[in-house]
Design a protein around this nucleic acid. Structure first.
Length: 271
DNA sequence: CCGGACGCCTGTCGGC
DNA sequence: TGCCGACAGGCGTCCG
């Protein structure tokens, strides 16, 4: 599910409820996520206060005083704020209960998500150490992409979905940004001109900004911290729109698989 | 080093 | 109505 805009939506929703709140307890009903939830999380986080929350790519980092929780929502994860007495439902694997009578609840039906605990710098954790720049980082620009793509033969769509290239761009927004930039998703990354990479950087930022403004995209699972769906689905130009008219030229949107991921594009406007 | 394939897990949907 | 395969927003790991 969640790509950068959905994780950012989750962050903005939970932040006011979580920052500065002392943790009373951590309830782990099922530790079997992508990696087992470490015992240290439940042992150390209670009695601490969450002092800071940031997003890095698709990761959320919840900083306590002696360590940091690293959270990833995988394909189907979501975070909700509830009154502390609210009964859990199926797939509600973890609660972080605060002393003020609220809790932060992680639901993840497919359990591709992760919740880890580190005492060191979370940005140096192996899962985060090799992430590329954030999309709005000035270092993420056309020259950077053009340089990094040199001699690479993989499809540009796979190239931008590689988290080492840029953090946070998943399947939906890669499709959308490539359409906005007029670049065919199967084009070899090393055969795209510098100027077209300038356009792609702008397109990625535009699409992500717009999606965040709509509270993300809900295809099925995703809800924000208050349980509301995101509305960017209504603005999708190509994703899940096979056979429907291209918003630019009205030619039918095509669908094929690239890099084992479903890909949507307009063969008339994207080259 | 690079690019592609696989597998993790559960739920849903379409076709027969 | 029921069953069965295909597919789904991610990504670490393995293989050639």
């Amino acid at each position: 599910m969640p790509e950068l805009p959905e994780v950012e939506t989750a962050l903005r929703g939970i932040r006011p409820y979580v920052i500065g709140e002392p943790v009373a307890q951590v309830v782990v009903r099922d530790p079997r996520l992508r990696w087992p939830i470490p015992k240290a999380l439940g042992a150390e986080l209670p009695a601490q206060t969450i002092v800071r929350i940031i997003r890095r790519g698709k990761y959320l980092l919840l900083y306590g005083q002696t360590g940091c929780a690293i959270l990833h929502l995988g394909m189907s994860g979501s975070l909700r704020i509830f009154p502390a007495k609210t009964a859990p439902e199926k797939h509600d694997h973890v609660d972080i209960v605060f002393t003020n009578g609220t809790l932060l609840r992680l639901r993840d039906p497919r359990r591709f998500g992760a919740l880890l605990w580190t005492r060191g710098d979370p940005l140096a954790h192996p899962l985060l150490a090799n992430l590329g720049p954030e999309p709005w980082d000035p270092a993420f620009n056309g020259a950077y992409l053009h340089q990094r793509a040199r001699h690479r033969r993989l499809p540009v769509k796979s190239f931008v979905m590689d988290s080492r290239t840029v953090a946070g761009v998943g399947n939906i927004y890669a499709n959308e940004a490539l359409h906005l930039a007029g670049i065919h998703p199967a084009r070899r990354a090393g055969r795209i001109a510098h100027r077209r990479y300038d356009a792609l950087v702008e397109a990625i930022r535009t699409v992500l900004d717009a999606a965040i403004a709509q509270g993300g995209t809900t295809l099925r699972d995703f809800v924000d911290s208050a349980g509301r769906a995101g509305y960017f689905k209504q603005r999708l130009r190509v994703y899940h729109r096979a056979g429907k008219p291209c918003p630019s030229c009205h030619a039918p949107i095509r669908q094929r698989s690239i890099g084992q991921r479903t890909t949507f594009f307009c063969s008339s406007c994207q080259h």
